[in-house]
């Protein structure tokens, strides 16, 4: 007997419960597989049948090699399967890159944080992906793997170069995100994540902004700014970063930074907010963060 609430007849020919990276990338090799991990974006039932899926469902949830949050040789590596909850509670990240747990705290809900993975948040390539912003600010790289010529072929790509458009990445067919990694920020670094509210978390950002760098009095150096929901992909704002870099922050400098930010973002009107409001909020977030430094 069919299940009453079964999905629209979605044609799946095969299901692979991958237990190793080898098995996972082999199952995905021909580009006809869909990897599933947390399911929080993939499994939205009303979207099934509307989105393009491969005919082979590959469950990667149990691939141990894709999990974990660890530091090796001054580089922090977050496995693609690390959940938002794991990031939120990671002692390493709380110490070394607290902007990541701070962002995870603004991410969806407990239940979704328990399921959603960092790999999924990146792979989904939403312009509003929260966790991508601090990773962009950390100059993170995406680690990818695919089955190619009878072996696992790995490569790394700067996260900033990974997104090709809403829902589109530069991953090759059959390529799987295995991890995201970045150099451990130098001592004295700071990072802050801001997102539209008023809900603390359960909201798809109308605008989100992340800023990171090092504070030296009223100056910021190694400035990194990333913004979400203001362009077809999450973006870095290099000209605004340059505007701020090393400058003693006062009202005039902040005004120049805001003006630059306004030129670097290109938000649209949609049901969640107007382009005007997105610009207004992005400026408010940056002004607040820079103002904090200026007043220090």
């Amino acid at each position: 007997m069919p299940l009453a609430q079964e999905l629209k007849p979605l044609e799946i020919d095969a299901y692979v419960d991958a237990v190793s990276l080898d098995a996972a990338v082999r199952a995905l090799a021909d580009g006809a597989g869909t990897p599933v991990a947390g399911g929080t974006d993939l499994w939205i039932q009303k979207d099934l049948g509307k989105r393009a899926y491969g005919r082979r469902l590959v469950n990667i949830r149990r691939v141990a090699a894709l999990g974990g949050i660890a530091e090796e040789g001054g580089r922090i590596r977050i496995g693609a399967l690390a959940t938002m909850t794991e990031i939120l509670e990671s002692p390493l990240l709380l110490r070394a890159a607290p902007v990541l747990p701070a962002t995870a705290d603004r991410f969806a809900s407990v239940q979704i944080r328990n399921a959603a993975t960092v790999g999924g948040n990146i792979a989904n390539a939403s312009p509003a992906a929260d966790m991508v912003l601090p990773l962009l600010c950390l100059d993170a790289e995406v680690e990818l793997a695919r089955w190619h010529e009878n072996r696992i072929d790995r490569r790394r790509l700067p996260l900033a170069a990974f997104f090709a458009g809403p829902g589109k990445t530069r991953a090759l067919p059959g390529e799987l995100i295995t991890a995201v990694s970045f150099d451990r920020p130098a001592a004295g670094s700071f990072g802050a994540f801001q997102k539209s509210g008023p809900r603390p978390a359960l909201e798809i950002a109308r605008v989100a902004l992340c800023i990171a760098g090092r504070r030296e009095g009223r100056r910021l150096t190694s400035v990194r700014i990333a913004a979400g929901a203001v362009a077809p992909t999450p973006i870095r704002c290099p000209r605004t970063e340059a505007e701020i870099e090393g400058v003693a922050l006062d009202d005039a400098a902040i005004a120049r930074a805001l003006e630059s930010l306004g030129r670097e973002i290109a938000p649209i009107d949609d049901v969640r907010g107007s382009a005007w409001y997105r610009r207004h909020l992005a400026a408010a977030f940056l002004e607040e963060e820079l103002g904090r430094v200026a007043r220090s």
Partner: peptide, 9 residues
């Protein structure tokens, strides 16, 4: 861990 069972395969 609490999960949204509607989103869980």
């Amino acid at each position: 861990l609490s999960r949204n069972s509607c989103l869980m395969p």
